[in-house]
Simulated scan of single mutants.
Amino acid sequence: MAKQRIEYIDTMRGFTMILVVFAHVCHFCLGDSRMGYNAVFILFRLPCFFMISGWLFESVAQRPFKEVAKHKAMVQLLPTFIFLLLLAPPPFFFHQLGTLKGGYWFTFALFEYFILYMLMIRISRNWTPLMAVVLTIGAFIYARYYDSLRSAADGYQLWLIDFSGFMSVTTWRLFLFFYLGTCIRRYFDVFIRWTNKPVVIGLITIVFFLIASTSHHDHLLFEMFRFYGGGITGMIMVFTFFRLSASWLKKLHISKPLQYVGTRTLDVYLLHFFFLPRFLMVYADQLAAYNCRLIEFCYIMAVSFVVLALTLTASYVIRLSPFLGHYLFGVKYDKAA
């Protein structure tokens, strides 16, 4: 029997997936990751994704370790390796196995989060919060000085740093959002009760936009505060918005399209790189010359919707084959069908 889906969760996932495509259009097609308000979106986009991943994973984390790890490897890692091979065949493939994995780092990092969380709760539930915070802060500091450490290292130490890059250690700075997602799932009634209070969610929203209005400063504590303060307030703000506005979004006929995207997040993530119009890079300066975030936003969003439409069409065609759907996207087909 198919799992009962939660509509506002899928709607939120769809929204954040569109922002992922938006960000990659900024970066890969226009060469500026801060265009069109993406500097604000970046504060909550990944925290939202990882929070929802933790929220959904909490219910299966206590299952047998080997069973969960094997299933997640088949769904997260195998498809990613296949698409990475298609995007960058050997010998280029082997140069894409660093921290960012040619853009496919998210699924690798998420798999590692699943493993880390299962190990933590099996060691000690009581110590899991401390382990999560120490791991996250340690990874944040390591990520900040990763490039300088790599340039200064040689021999055995360089091998260790390269291995940590393959293991996506620098992305573990986002693990805290995944862990908070598991906490929200465990204490969901308390979370709902507090975020139903207008004064609480209003204060959280104000804090988020105050943080988002600050500019970058090359200071460790400030960077850490902006990263985690913006991420936590942003993910709570977005999650609460979609939870409370579900009926309103339905009336505007926005909910269903976002839900569809939300049920195809892995497909979109793996496929959209092939449809990014990188030829737009030559027009980046012309767009920047307008010096208007709203124009940039509208232009980039229009391109993102075209990329998304092509990606979803390709996903639909691929899923027509049970073999390809299973091994490329981890789809479970009804054997009786």
Rank of each mutant, 00 (worst) to 15 (best):
T11S: 09
G14M: 03
F15A: 12
M17E: 03
I18R: 00
A23V: 00
V25M: 02
V25D: 03
V25A: 00
H27Q: 08
H27L: 11
F28H: 02
D32K: 05
D32M: 02
D32Q: 07
R34L: 09
M35I: 03
G36L: 05
Y37A: 02
Y37I: 02
Y37L: 09
N38V: 03
F41C: 08
L46F: 15
W55E: 05
W55V: 04
L56V: 13
E58L: 13
R63F: 10
R63T: 07
R63V: 10
F65Q: 12
F65V: 12
K66H: 09
A69V: 12
A69D: 03
K72I: 07
A73R: 04
L78S: 06
L78C: 07
T80Q: 08
F81C: 11
F83D: 05
F93P: 02
Q96E: 12
L100C: 05
L100Q: 14
I115E: 07
M118S: 06
I123P: 00
N126S: 02
W127V: 07
T128F: 04
T136G: 12
I141E: 07
R144A: 11
Y145M: 09
Y145C: 04
Y146D: 15
D147H: 11
L149Q: 09
A152P: 08
D154E: 15
D154W: 08
G155L: 13
Y156T: 14
W159A: 15
W159C: 12
L160C: 14
L160R: 14
F163N: 06
S164N: 08
S168T: 15
W172C: 10
T182A: 05
Y187P: 03
F188I: 01
D189V: 03
F191R: 02
R193V: 03
W194F: 14
P198C: 06
V199M: 07
I201P: 01
G202V: 02
L203S: 12
I204T: 09
I204R: 04
I206W: 03
V207Y: 03
F208S: 01
F209C: 06
I211Q: 05
I211Y: 06
A212F: 06
H216Y: 15
H219G: 01
H219W: 08
L220M: 15
R226G: 08
F227Q: 13
Y228M: 06
G229E: 04
V238N: 04
F239Q: 04
R243I: 06
H253E: 12
Q259W: 02
D267H: 13
Y269M: 15
Y269L: 15
L270C: 12
H272Y: 00
D285Q: 09
Q286G: 13
L287N: 04
F297M: 07
C298Y: 00
M301W: 00
A302N: 02
V306Q: 00
V307G: 00
A309Q: 04
T311C: 04
L312H: 00
S315F: 01
R319C: 14
L320A: 02
P322R: 13
P322L: 06
F323W: 15
L324H: 10
L328W: 10
L328C: 14
V331K: 14
K335D: 06
A336K: 07
